[in-house]
């Protein structure tokens, strides 16, 4: 009975945490808005008779809402992709950029920044090159058939290094007055420049990615037992792994395309979630989704509330995340035996 109570409490925590954070986040920022105004403003499209000021409406809907949704989307995407990768590669040290997606996307963005200044093009090229780099990694691993997962991971490392070199090339030739800082700023990861338009562009890849990973979450458990066992249990490991990689790549590319490279979340959130709910992906994937979304939103709120200058969130996720992670690690972790 005791363990069942614990499960219920965990479940409620994981459902309520993001909801509370969602509403609380509207209160944070340089322009103070009361909780009552926030609720009124959010309800105003449904109940037009509510009287709200134009300023508050603009701040809530055009500044704070896109940023909150972006934090949710990016945090949950990176966390779910990280959890999925750790399962199918049977390795808890894996993060979503294992197969080169981040450096590929970074190259796309850097290329777009030196070619033109359109935010739209930057986002598109980041997304497309994220997918291209993983596709190259995957195709290489198919050429060297015998090695399986090991070859896939190694070609991921290689392609990642290759795109990293290309990024350095672009940095080297970029105009140090305006283009270079822009590239560096992008690579650090930031949610400040997210707009509704950018969010709309990632809706489709985000939903497809999340749905694939949610649907296949039980099969991930079986893949974690190894390819031969998975096959003897009737699964086609190559096919399912490809589907999962595709889902993760859509999610990560979509996330990176609006926020730049935000590290660490895809590695630690899966661990935090596993410490709370255990390794069964049927519960772990939704838990990662909730925790990833909440964590990034929390960090973004801290960055907006505590510090007056805008620090790239990629820096803060590590500065806040590492001590938290080490604290959790100290509390005991049977998996690291």
């Amino acid at each position: 009975m005791d363990s069942q109570n614990k499960e219920v409490i965990t479940f409620i925590f994981l459902v309520i945490l993001p909801i509370i954070l969602f509403f609380a986040s509207f209160l944070i920022g340089r322009y103070p808005i009361s909780p009552v105004d926030v609720v009124k403003t959010i309800l105003s499209p449904i109940f037009p008779q509510l009287k709200i000021s134009q300023t508050i409406s603009t701040i809530v809907f055009e500044i704070r809402l896109p940023r909150i949704i972006a934090a949710f989307a990016v945090g949950s995407a990176l966390a779910v992709a990280g959890t999925s990768f750790q399962s199918i590669f049977k390795n808890p040290l894996v993060s979503p950029d294992l197969l080169g997606v981040s450096n590929g996307a970074g190259f796309g963005a850097a290329l777009a920044i030196i070619l033109c200044s359109s935010n739209f093009i930057v986002q598109i090229l980041a997304f497309v090159f994220g997918i291209i780099s993983v596709s190259i990694t995957y195709l290489i691993s198919r050429v060297y058939k015998a090695g399986g997962i090991l070859v896939l991971v190694l070609s991921g490392v290689a392609i990642s290094a290759f795109f990293n070199a290309l990024i350095s090339c672009i940095k080297f030739v970029a105009d140090p007055q305006d283009k270079l800082p822009e590239i560096i700023y992008w690579l650090m990861g930031c949610l400040a420049s997210v707009t509704i338009d950018k969010l709309i562009m990632i809706i489709i890849p985000f939903i497809i990615g999340i749905v694939i990973l949610l649907v296949l979450r039980w099969q991930m458990n079986i893949l974690a037992m190894g390819d031969e066992e998975a096959q003897s249990l009737g699964l086609n490991p190559t096919k399912i792994r490809l589907l999962i990689i595709a889902g993760c790549t859509l999610l990560t590319s979509a996330a990176v395309s609006i926020s730049g490279i935000i590290g660490w979340i895809g590695l630690i959130i899966p661990h935090m979630a596993r410490m709370i709910v255990g390794p069964d992906n049927r519960i772990l994937i939704p838990a990662s989704l909730s925790l990833g979304a909440s964590f990034l939103l929390l960090v973004d709120n801290i960055s907006r509330a505590v510090i007056t200058i805008e620090i790239p969130i990629g820096i803060l996720t590590s500065i806040i995340g590492v001590p938290l992670f080490l604290y959790l690690l100290k509390r005991g972790y049977s998996e690291w035996s």
């Binding site: 974690a224 190894g226 066992e229 596993r274 390794p279 069964d280």
Partner: peptide
């Protein structure tokens, strides 16, 4: 056909 391999590399601590 069911199959149990000779050895198993343990993965995550599933129940």
């Amino acid at each position: 056909i069911g199959y149990i391999p000779q050895s198993h590399v343990p993965s995550f601590p599933f129940r």
